[in-house]
Write a protein that binds this DNA or RNA. Sequence first.
DNA 1: ATGAAAGCGCTAACAG
DNA 2: CTGTTAGCGCTTTCAT
Lengths: 338, 338
Amino acid sequence: MATMTDVAKHAGVTKQTVSNVLSGKAVVREETRQRVLEAIEVLGYRPNLVARSLRKGKTSILAIMVPTIANPFYSDIVEEVERIAGEHEYNLLLCTSRKSAERAQNQLQILSDRSIDGLLLLDDSPISTELATVVQGQFPIILCNWEHEPYPDNFPVVSIDYREAGYLAGQHLLDVGLREHIAVIWESPAHHLRFQGVRNALLDSGVDLEAHHIIATADSTTESGYQAARMLLARRPLPQAILATNDLMALGTLKALREHGLRVPDDIAVIGIDNIFLGADAYPPLTTVEIPKREMAAEMTRLLLRCMKEEETPIPRLLTLLRPRLIVRCSTPHSVIT
Amino acid sequence: MATMTDVAKHAGVTKQTVSNVLSGKAVVREETRQRVLEAIEVLGYRPNLVARSLRKGKTSILAIMVPTIANPFYSDIVEEVERIAGEHEYNLLLCTSRKSAERAQNQLQILSDRSIDGLLLLDDSPISTELATVVQGQFPIILCNWEHEPYPDNFPVVSIDYREAGYLAGQHLLDVGLREHIAVIWESPAHHLRFQGVRNALLDSGVDLEAHHIIATADSTTESGYQAARMLLARRPLPQAILATNDLMALGTLKALREHGLRVPDDIAVIGIDNIFLGADAYPPLTTVEIPKREMAAEMTRLLLRCMKEEETPIPRLLTLLRPRLIVRCSTPHSVIT
DNA sequence: ATGAAAGCGCTAACAG
DNA sequence: CTGTTAGCGCTTTCAT
């Protein structure tokens, strides 16, 4: 590979001049500039970004750490982050924490060793703020998709108002006239805020959740939604509606209801949270609450970019919560006009 | 940040000795080693990977280029690649080509400028082998998930036998006694090999595809599957079975059949290809042909790692095709014993 | 406007 | 076994 010195020789100047031409920071005589440009062209010169990074102490590399990229929720976010990062001439390093604090710790350390310019951390395990402190000061870090309280105050946070998401789902059931025997399937403790939102919505209308209509699950797969729904169907009275704290569990619920020959929404209404891909193609198309993950991705990336530009350490206590919104499809009944 | 020289001073040695302790390549007296280790501990020293990369000409960074990461097919692969890369102390840079040859070109160039150690290229657009040639020689490149012929011979290829996938799907329909009025929905030209496989299976049993039962689509979303199925339902005779060249279109097909009050598989059988997440939770659970993408991911990563170890340029003409396998669920009838 | 020198932090090669 | 020297390719600083 041709180096900057090669170009300089070819153009009869020093590499400093070549550097000036490329950076555009210093003034170069037009004739010299042309000679340099021509030399670059002829030799097929390309700057060595590793060398540049070493010298400048900046790599123009961002990193994103997610629990897993196999989950479409996260891959959707990464898609957006990568796009925006690219627009600003940054490359994206992908890291997965995979439910292991130790792994996250190692990854974080390596990112620091690589002198990345910034990090988006999507892992709201309690320890992650501590971990992040280890490499704090090296580069800005934004905590994203934080789903429980208290919100950290040592890093900026960009997330969704998950309590509001639960509230919207609960409120919708009330709005279509369902006030009794509302069942909830929620992942505990991960979806605590969502669950709280649901309960608040009902309480605000004087409706109580009955203990035998609440099922807490250990994860939020279609399978656990399916099993939880079967448990609900074995109890009496049957629920009028089943609210699952995510769409995957809602889809599992739909499957269980189908197997029991129950019609949705006529016999039992179903609502989820997330608005995942394919919810619209389910049977019946799933009513849900959209989590604006793309907007969140855009917001957190922009904030990170901003923090990187400013020399000062980023705003520590800054909480940005995006608002979810209801998507009415066919798994809940139409509004009842009373 | 403490540098290697700092550690050296603290331990009363030169940085070369520190380097020796870290690399373990040269023998160091135990006492000295301990002093160095202690200094590292005390100062919290971490090697600067950018500097190391510059010096060694290797970054221990791999890159993967996919059309998009938002598609679960690709994110699933990336999950596996990242895991294996991590086990070998490599970080993963994520790039998306987003259907733009120009974009792919730029990304490739930048990857080269960054001195990455290897690339997994998942984009079988005809130009991608040309593009790859631009940076050829800098680092090994593996072409992955190549889905049409001819297979490139200037890079190693790891892919799936997509023709076989089509064949298995077609053969299954024959095996369960469906021999007439088989309809095919396929994305043209992307799924040409799959389509060819289907046709071969039928031809091998003397069954002909009828022109009015073939629908070519421009993409392979649930929506295009839905629309294609509606077209088929408007024609006579009605098909006995609908084979879609991917699961998303098969799910769209299921939706269209439901809306027409047709029972699956009693009235019309449906089969897809891919075995996507959620196919098992569809209504009815979808029979499909599994594309072993995880295995492919593992295989291509291992091959890349191997190419990187060997100093010689990687084996140019090497074609590895993984075999798909049939997954029978409920959208096709049970075997008929004749 | 251009050149000369220094150095980012590390490892390779050799000397002692 | 440890120290010295050199240099990866670039940008920053200062001199001309």
